Amino acid sequence: MLVLAIDTATPAVTTGVVTVTGDGVEVRSSRVEINTRKHAELLMPLVLQACSDAGAALRDMDAFVVGAGPGPFTGLRVGMVTAAALGDALGRPVHGVCTLDAIAADCPTGEPLLVVTDARRREVYWAAYDEAGRRVDGPHVEAPASLTRRAGGYVAAGGMAAVLGRPVVGPESPSPGGLVAVAAEALRAGIIPGPLEPLYLRRPDAVEPTGRKRVTAG
């Protein structure tokens, strides 16, 4: 089974082509570029480059997997809307996965793990995983200082892992292989995914105006 993976929930724009086998996943191509402001401009060119690297076309994909966050509103929407549009145009299923789970999938198991990424506003997104790599808490958003006080006994991964003062054992952003690994069981089973649901974890900055501004005097 051939799968295209996409994630724009972190500063990295990530995409790649992955083969799902009976007992694992094999990355055929990977394209990653770090740019916090150009997710929309970079994503589709990287998708097409990843397909070319893998010797495949978009129509050859059996499914799509996309990181559903948590992540900042604008960046996260770019990846999810793109994956949804491709799935709709080609009639393929689109599986949303937690971006933090995908990062955890690329970490060695055997120790309790915290995956921590940048939520901006002096906060972090985080989730906790047990020794077998299963998520046991989160995802949440909070100030890093309060999370650091509870981080004893954990190793860390993700773009903000260093703020915890714990050993860093994993990547800053998800890989195509990690994204697909999270969805691999559902892909093998042929499960039809539900609607994509972004993990924003907090309300947007923009607010609806409460009244009209007066523009004339008197």
Rank of each mutant, 00 (worst) to 15 (best):
L42D: 05
E33G: 07
P70D: 14
D60A: 09
A83G: 03
F64T: 01
E111R: 15
A143H: 12
M61K: 02
Y129L: 09
P70H: 13
R59P: 11
V94S: 02
R92A: 10
A127Q: 11
T36F: 15
V136Q: 06
R122E: 09
M80I: 13
A83T: 04
R37M: 09
G110I: 08
E123M: 12
A68P: 08
L90R: 00
D53H: 02
R37Y: 05
V94C: 00
L76G: 07
A56W: 14
V78C: 07
D137N: 15
T74W: 04
R134C: 14
P72Y: 07
T74F: 09
R28P: 10
P45M: 02
A68G: 06
R122K: 07
V81N: 03
H140L: 14
S29M: 00
M61P: 08
L43C: 08
L90D: 02
G71A: 12
D101V: 03
I103F: 03
V116A: 08
H140K: 11
A89F: 00
N35A: 13
V25H: 06
C98N: 05
T117M: 09
C107S: 11
V94W: 01
A89P: 02
A68V: 06
V141T: 13
T109C: 13
C51N: 10
E41K: 05
V66H: 03
G67N: 06
R59A: 15
P144W: 01
G87T: 01
C98W: 12
A54R: 06
L58P: 12
A40G: 01
K38C: 14
R28K: 10
L114S: 04
E41A: 05
D118S: 08
L100W: 07
E131D: 09
T21N: 10
A50L: 08
V136T: 04
E142H: 12
S30Q: 15
G75R: 10
A143F: 10
G71R: 14
G69N: 03
L43Q: 10
G133S: 03
R134H: 13
A68K: 13
L46S: 06
D118E: 11
V81R: 01
V115S: 04
P72M: 05
D23Y: 11
S52I: 14
R31E: 14
A104V: 03
V25K: 02
S29Y: 02
L43D: 04
P112Y: 02
R31Q: 11
A63E: 04
D130L: 10
H140R: 15
P70Q: 12
A128G: 12
I103K: 07
G91P: 04
H140I: 13
A68M: 11
E33N: 12
P72I: 04
D53I: 12
A84T: 06
L86V: 05
E142I: 12
H95P: 02
N35Y: 07
E131T: 15
A119T: 07
A83Y: 00
A68F: 13
A104I: 06
N35G: 11
V115P: 05
R121P: 15
V27G: 14
E142Y: 09
E111H: 15
C51I: 07
L42E: 08
V81M: 04
L42M: 08
A68D: 07
V116T: 01
R92T: 04
L100D: 06
E41S: 08
M61S: 05
H140F: 15
L42K: 03
L100F: 00
V97H: 08
S52L: 15
D60T: 03
G71K: 09
D130H: 05
G110P: 10
S29I: 05
E111S: 15
P144C: 03
L100Q: 08
P93Q: 07
